[in-house]
């Protein structure tokens, strides 16, 4: 059974249809990479899955349970409580990190545990240290975000999400704002997470990473999934012309060998 699923998701902004009926199932422990040209709706899809955007129609199911209830007219209604609970279980990492600049690294990871999960300060601190250690930043707990490099900030953001102990993690171009030499450390963290069996949906332009880490790759074009399959099927033997065109655009792409670290 799938951990998280999108069923016929549509999303329009004013008159623009951005998502035109997306179906996507992600199994427990599966790592799925979402590819697509700029403006194809990748971010919008991710944001619909944790309801940072409200889908215009369609359903999201988490662990087999549908989110929201349809009203008499068939429109989905979501309660505030329900959405907060869903978001606790679906972590998200943003391109711009979005750490809380007024809090230390440790408190960045603690605050939602305290305020949302109601954990005690001691327990939240213990969990924060555990996850910061996991992303290799145990020695930075008392720094403020502004004093960290981009790569370190993004790893704190990952720890902040992980500390909620989510069932699913969404990554929206987590490395796109980073200097090239800092990309590796974040990708490595994501790769480790995938190896530990986290359910992940990743938007990235790092095709080498996608090739090595994804179990499945999904290609989105103008709001519709037009092709999906194993990394080999999509990246090496794409069928759709759109996918081929997209891959041609990534001229620097070369297939790394599996033993190369992503």
């Amino acid at each position: 059974m799938s951990m998280i699923a999108a069923r016929n998701i549509h999303k329009s902004f004013q008159s623009q249809d951005v998502l035109k009926g997306v179906d996507l199932d992600i199994g427990k422990g599966e790592t799925v990479v979402l590819l697509g040209a700029s403006g194809s709706g990748k971010s919008t899809l991710l944001r619909c899955l944790n309801f940072l955007e409200m889908p215009t129609s369609g359903e999201v199911c988490l662990d087999g349970k549908r989110v929201g209830t349809p009203d008499a007219g068939g429109r989905m209604r979501y309660s505030e409580t329900e959405l907060c609970q869903l978001r606790q279980r679906v972590g998200m990492v943003f391109q711009q990190f979005n750490l809380f600049p007024h809090l230390t690294v440790e408190w960045n990871v603690m605050i939602a545990q305290r305020k949302v999960l109601g954990r005690s300060e001691a327990q939240a601190r213990e969990r924060a240290r555990y996850y910061l250690e996991k992303v290799g930043l145990a020695e930075k707990i008392n720094e403020y975000p502004a004093r960290l490099s981009g790569g370190q900030q993004q790893r704190v953001a990952i720890a902040r999400s992980l500390a909620m102990e989510p069932d699913v993690m969404l990554f929206d171009e987590a490395t796109s704002a980073l200097d090239p030499e800092l990309v590796g450390e974040v990708l490595q963290t994501m790769k480790n997470l995938s190896g530990e069996g986290m359910t992940m949906l990743i938007v990235t332009h790092e095709l080498g990473f996608a090739y090595n880490v994804a179990h499945r790759i999904v290609f989105l074009h103008e709001g519709t999934i037009i092709e999906e399959g194993t990394p080999d099927e999509i990246l090496v033997h794409p069928k759709s012309e759109r996918t081929k065109a997209f891959l041609r655009g990534h001229t620097v792409f070369r297939l790394p060998q599996p033993e190369e670290t992503a």
Binding site: L52, C84, R160, S161
Partner: peptide
Amino acid sequence: DRGQWEASIALGMTFRTVFGSI
């Protein structure tokens, strides 16, 4: 920055918590 709201909401915080704590 809007990102502060989004990151907080994505962590499951309510409006009250986002407003008061972040």
